[in-house]
Design a protein around this nucleic acid. Structure first.
Lengths: 212, 212
DNA sequence: ACCTACTTACTTAGTAGTAAGTAGGTTGAT
DNA sequence: ATCAACCTACTTACTACTAAGTAAGTAGGT
């Protein structure tokens, strides 16, 4: 009966889906343990407190993102490829039963999560925006994107809009997100083909469904 | 001891702050009753279930927004004034201890709120985006704004970015929101003065602090 | 003999929600 | 004008449940 010995990772997978579907304060240890066929105390064994679980989850998001960026750097991807690869992350969330961006959830509940989670959240946000600002700067220099203003400010608009659009897609349907993405590309002077569907799972590789 | 007979409205005020500060699933009846010096059951008297409270709160947001739009219509405000007035709403939230957009919170927790709240949330989102798309369309026709694409898509980008930026401001500080707003205006070909500070409280008039 | 990865059984502290009682004001019939 | 009936806006006291977290025990591998 030891088909999946990696209980710890399965717990994180379950927590990830629950976080992006319901929010941190709207799921319990039982929501994790029951589907996995284990006991609440088993979850506590791996993650003594819920805050530890949350912080470990955010750290995993960060490691995945770092690895994804590193892989692209090795491949020497150009700015347009990097940006389309980044767009694939929320597109994956969207396909995954309208999951929202983890950063959005954590920031919305920021005053109701433990301190170690806040620190990790801040770090993830900074890393993503720093990456994106670099991509936008390089892309503009190389003539792949057109926009006015600082790359940091444009990166802010892009991440904020993607994050917000995933949330809006919850009430307005997935086309709301796709329309937002198309407009963002248009505002960057990019080629507006729907595309980027087969861009690979990227760092936002969501556990359930396709991992079966 | 009847300084404030309007308990019902005070409950909604408290719930509003709690929603935008902590999220719907991260506050309890006690968080409302205790500061008001009343009992939990008094809250249940006015709002039998937490879902009723939440739905009533969203309905109040909607009524405030309708009244605000109607007031501007009577005044015959031009698109730029309307848009700057709309921008004043999240700017007020920001000043109010980094409150986030109620729609963002509700959408993030969408799978963890009762059904009547979902219906009301959907309605509020549709009303806001419809209003904004109209403003953007008129403004472009009158030469006040410049942008490519459909007004509906541009409205989506604007509301999504504002919503997301309020959340990001939680972890990155208020300048993150202001930078996002400046970039959005820049992308619309608007005059980029910081301004719009004394735009009045508008429909996002938050209860506590200044109402004292 | 010990470690890892659990389980069973429990505690403590909340949560939303309810039932029944009550103070004070309003209404209506006599 | 007075008294009974009733309504609004609560209170006290409770139920039923769920939450996170802990202590102690155990099976199986090293």
């Amino acid at each position: 009966m030891s088909a999946r010995p990696d209980t710890r990772e399965q717990i994180l997978d379950a927590a990830e889906t629950l976080l992006q579907q319901r929010g941190f304060n709207a799921f319990s240890y039982q929501n994790i343990s029951q589907p996995l066929g284990i006991r609440n105390a088993a979850v506590h064994y791996h993650f003594p407190t819920k805050g530890n679980l949350g912080a470990a989850l955010i750290d995993r998001y960060r490691r995945r993102f770092h690895a994804w960026v590193a892989a692209h750097r090795r491949r020497g991807s150009d700015p347009a490829t990097l940006l389309n690869g980044y767009f694939a992350i929320p597109l994956n969330y969207l396909r995954h039963d309208n999951c929202v961006c983890p950063l959005g959830v954590l920031e919305a509940e920021f005053n109701a999560i433990p301190d170690d989670m806040r620190v990790a959240t801040r770090a993830l946000d900074a890393e993503i925006r720093e990456f994106l600002a670099g991509v936008l700067r390089d892309g503009r220099e190389q003539g792949q994107f057109q926009f006015a203003g600082l790359p940091e400010a444009k990166a802010l608009v892009v991440v904020a809009a993607l994050q917000g659009a995933l949330q809006i897609a919850r009430v307005a349907g997935p086309t709301a997100f796709r329309d937002t993405l198309r407009q963002l590309k248009c505002d960057l002077g990019m080629d507006v083909r729907s595309a980027t569907a087969a861009e690979g799972t990227g760092p936002g590789a969501h556990p359930s469904r396709e991992t079966n």
